[in-house]
Design a protein around this nucleic acid. Sequence first.
RNA 1: CGGGGUAUAGCGCAGCCUGGUAGCGCGGAAGUUUUGGGUACUUCAGGUCGCAGGUUCGAAUCCUGCUGCCCCGACCA
Length: 455
Amino acid sequence: MGLKFYPVEAEHKKPMRLSRYFLPILRETPKEAEIVSHRLMLRAGMIRQEAAGIYAWLPLGLRVLQKVGQIVREEMDRAGAIELLMPTLQLADLWRESGRYEAYGPEMLRIKDRHERELLYGPTNEDMITEIFRASVRSYRDLPKILYHIQWKFRDEQRPRFGVMRGREFLMKDAYSFDVDEASARLSYRRMFVSYLRIFARMGLRAIPMRAETGPIGGDLSHEFIILAQTGESAVFCHSDFLQLPIPGADTDYDGDLSPIIEEWTRLYAATEDVHDKARFEAETPEDKRIHTRGIEVGQVFYFGDKYSKPMQSLIAGPDGVERPFQGGSYGVGVSRLVGALIEANHDENGIIWPESVAPFKIGIANLKVGDGPTDTACLEIYRALETAGVEALYDDTDERPGAKFAKLDLIGLPYQIIVGPKGLAEGKVELKSRATGARQMLSPAEAIAHFSAA
RNA sequence: CGGGGUAUAGCGCAGCCUGGUAGCGCGGAAGUUUUGGGUACUUCAGGUCGCAGGUUCGAAUCCUGCUGCCCCGACCA
């Protein structure tokens, strides 16, 4: 009996008619939402809170979450990291072996199953990845390796707040590097560092690597990647030239020498307030180049050596035949947090302004007079043409007032709006509006379609 | 975890002080109207007043306990 294959077309996100979609817009802001990203995510129907720090991702929010995750995935893969998927629940015994079970404290959610086995909802995966790695890798010949996954984590924060920016349950990419010695481990660290520059840049964010304390995970080399935002959680100090530094290209050779990039991006002063050295800042940074603002941490890279490999006896035989613990690092990106951070960085008084790379849809089509023959026809023509071209569009075919449609489209922040109504059509035109700039141009429907289907 | 709030319809709120069986706006449904930046009007539907005790003839309202949620701080991706 042979296997039978059913070929299917490659999936891509299709356009959607709003009348068939699920987009629960709120006109008023729920009172619990304090910061702008939280307010806008609730109002735009992206998320719904189910418990303190625990959210359901509604369709619009999910699309953004998946796009952010996909960019992270593509850049991890480009840097040579390998994706796997570890479970959310872990055995307590694993954490006892690394010595972290008692150390972690009440932030860790501890659970018992029906057999009274002690489990925990993973707040991170160093212990588990070490266990997976040691089961099969024993030789330096198999190194270096970088493994990662994108998985939900849980940290029982004493005080969750800021919506998805500091939830208890959160989606995180965490990567782990395995090397035979420190020199090699530092090369892995550099790969991840450069990869992070690209990840955030692709989302339209300028993330600045700042020297960081190593925190409970441990180690002696660490950077936090921080985006500048007035509403950020911590005060930051940095050199303004960071805003100008070039982002490594997609053609960056991750097997080559990355040190020039690292040098360029770590030369200038950048620190969060907890490690800020005022004297050094002022000595190294000219007065007119000093930035003092607030920032949101969106990623962190650690080198932690044998912190886990040693207690867990994950040993690698080197070229000399001697076994030693591998040298490790871990590299996190807060995927769900980034969705909030993106809104903090991209909004105005009317709502969200998505960068194209993470927008839930690229275009919103507003039918200003549903039921009017020529208007309906023109909208459908555009909608179908975009569908054929594989352009993600949301067609507002609901029977609402034009003003309500404009407000809704501005709120959910799709990069482009195609506005179709009888007035414009009388001239043979539809309006194309950029959400970011507010620029409008009148085009024929065919021109509007060509504007997006060419690329 | 300390401190402070709050809990009444999907959302935002009033009613509580001075107990008498629940109301407003938005949203939803039906309709008329309107038609390029959240139109106006009419009608309708929707609530075990967080939970459990207690006081009382009677509790959203007073008392006790519990829980959820929010804010400030400490802490954290």
